[in-house]
């Protein structure tokens, strides 16, 4: 008897692995889609990026930068 013989047990485990893989792929696709949706409908995406930008400071709203 070859040690590599396919057992019914292996089929079950393979089914479980494939199922879990599909769930994980679906989750990744969903999170990616959510990210795109959030970015598309998001508010201002600007940030300070390590240096102070007066145009983004709420205190400067009365004197907006041109």
């Amino acid at each position: 008897m070859a040690i590599t013989r396919e057992h019914e047990l292996h089929k079950r485990r393979s089914g479980r692995n494939v199922g879990l893989a599909l769930v994980l792929v679906a989750f990744i696709v969903l999170v990616f889609g959510l990210t795109i949706a959030k970015v598309q409908s998001g508010a201002s995406l600007q940030a300070y990026d390590h240096s102070y930008r007066p145009s983004l400071d709420p205190d400067n709203v009365r004197y907006p930068q041109r």
């Binding site: 057992h7 019914e8 047990l9 079950r12 485990r13 089914g15 479980r16 494939v18 199922g19 879990l20």
Partner: peptide, 13 residues
């Protein structure tokens, strides 16, 4: 002998 009757399928989860 391995009783695989009790091994869970994906559908069990």
């Amino acid at each position: 002998s391995y009783s695989d009757e009790k091994e869970a399928r994906f559908s069990d989860y």
